[in-house]
């Protein structure tokens, strides 16, 4: 395949960026999107140009490192991560726009790489449980009802990639935060911090400069792990419950 790429190039956080156009040839339909970018970078390096910086790690769709808004869609046209997106989803002669996640809480560091440490700080504010250390407890020591376990697992699938924020017209992190809150709040292990968790994580999310939720549903459509939109309603319920219970 022969493709035209229009890629966001930005030297560093301070300097303004712009879209740059590149031609790539001999792209196999079996390549992943990141392998296609590797091909481009090899050519750029050989030509003495600066390669395009982009985030990637496991390339198995489970680590949440890769990002990229491809033709206006977070992670591109398929419902998966960019590393699991293959070039067979495109046609010979296509022009593909590649942009970084856009949100003021995700500032661009270089080219397509953004700083997602705001997510880490949301996790630090409450995305944990208090557990005694020592030998691992027996797996059946704390019974968990099957529907609760399923609900927790559905939300635990979130890999924290930030596609929800990138897709949201308000740059809101509600789907990410709700996935993390719901995952722990439904389980007995998460019960001691049930109220403080949701209050602290929502407060941190606001402090980081993410926008509010207008329930456009863009986040759930973009999520490569299929975190459902009602997840947000479930967190709102937890938040309202916590404001009634906790006096601050």
């Amino acid at each position: 395949m022969k493709l035209t790429l229009r890629v966001w190039r930005q030297r560093n956080a301070e300097e303004p960026g712009a879209m740059a156009t590149y031609e790539v040839d001999n792209i196999s339909a079996d390549m992943s999107f990141l392998e296609m970018l590797d091909t481009l970078n090899e050519e750029l390096t050989l030509a003495g140009d600066e390669p395009v910086a982009f985030d990637h790690d496991c390339r198995e769709g489970i680590c949440g490192a890769c990002s990229l808004v491809i033709n206006g869609d977070a992670h591109g046209p398929e419902r998966t991560t960019t590393c699991q997106l293959h070039m067979r989803s495109f046609s010979d002669g296509d022009t593909i726009d590649v942009e970084p996640w856009r949100a003021s809480a995700f500032p661009v560091i270089k080219d397509l790489v953004v700083d997602r440490s705001s997510f880490d700080r949301i996790i630090q504010s409450g995305g944990y449980i208090s557990a005694p250390t020592g030998t691992a407890p027996d797996a059946h020591a704390t019974p968990v009802p099957k529907p609760d376990a399923d609900f927790a697992f559905e939300h635990a699938e979130c890999i924290g990639c930030g596609a929800c924020v990138a897709a949201c017209p308000n740059g809101s992190a509600m789907l990410f935060t709700s996935a993390k809150v719901n995952h722990l709040n439904v389980l007995p292990q998460g019960a001691p911090e049930r109220e403080t968790r949701v209050l602290d994580m929502v407060a941190r999310m606001d402090e980081e400069g993410f926008g509010g939720c207008t329930l456009t549903g863009e986040c759930a459509t973009a999520c490569p792990k299929g975190i459902p939109l009602p997840s947000i309603a479930a967190m709102n319920k937890e938040w309202l419950r916590a404001t009634r219970k906790v006096r601050r």
């Binding site: 206006g72 308000n170 740059g171 993410f210 509010g212």
Partner: peptide, 15 residues
């Protein structure tokens, strides 16, 4: 106001 501030840069590729 907050939402607009949270997404200052628009995507070049509109949909």
């Amino acid at each position: 106001r907050r939402d607009i501030k949270a997404r200052p840069a628009k995507y070049v590729h509109k949909r």
